[in-house]
């Protein structure tokens, strides 16, 4: 099965896409690589092309980590690159060999402040990414597949 490579940035207009390309470089990570570390500065906003990135949180007092969600091709990684205080809220770990387009965080923030058209196109994509994570987390909180307390039978 071949995976069609699409980038979340494909949804931008050609003009904005071209201006953003100046700030963008392709990056590849082997499986197991730590791409973002919780609490540290987010170096870039990434658009996953291929592979899979697990967003993990450390379980308090147990030391091990739980995967909250995975980021897949076509999705954005690292919204915290453009949202203060610009620190990663989770660890991001490649669980497969992963390729992504990385937009430098500092340069992007400068450009967003200067280029209204670019901001107007890109920020909704970032918001959508945050919104998806949020609603996904809420549904996970419902634990709808979870063990039930009591059944009549």
């Amino acid at each position: 099965m071949t995976t069609r490579i699409t980038s979340a940035l494909d949804r931008l207009s050609p003009a904005v896409h071209a201006r953003l390309a100046e700030l963008t470089r392709p990056v590849a990570y082997p499986a197991g690589a730590v791409i973002l570390r919780e609490g540290t500065d987010t170096p870039f906003l990434g658009a996953i092309l291929e592979g899979r990135v697990a967003l993990r949180l450390r379980v308090p007092e147990r030391g091990d980590r739980v995967t909250i969600v995975t980021v897949e091709p076509g999705e954005l990684l690292g919204w915290s690159a453009v949202v203060a205080p610009y620190r990663a809220t989770v660890d991001a770990v490649a669980t497969e060999p992963t390729r992504l387009l990385a937009i430098d965080a500092v340069a992007l923030r400068d450009r967003l402040a200067a280029d209204c058209e670019l901001a107007a196109e890109l920020l909704p994509l970032v918001l959508e990414s945050v919104s998806d994570r949020l609603s996904g987390s809420w549904q996970q909180l419902l634990d709808m597949f979870g063990a039930r307390v009591h059944e009549p039978w």
Binding site: R52, A54, D64, V66, T67, E96, G136, Q140, D143
Partner: peptide, 14 residues
């Protein structure tokens, strides 16, 4: 799956 430990390399999410 809705949640997983680090040993799970598949997809996580709703």
């Amino acid at each position: 799956v809705d949640r997983a430990g680090p040993e799970w390399l598949g997809r996580v999410g709703i």
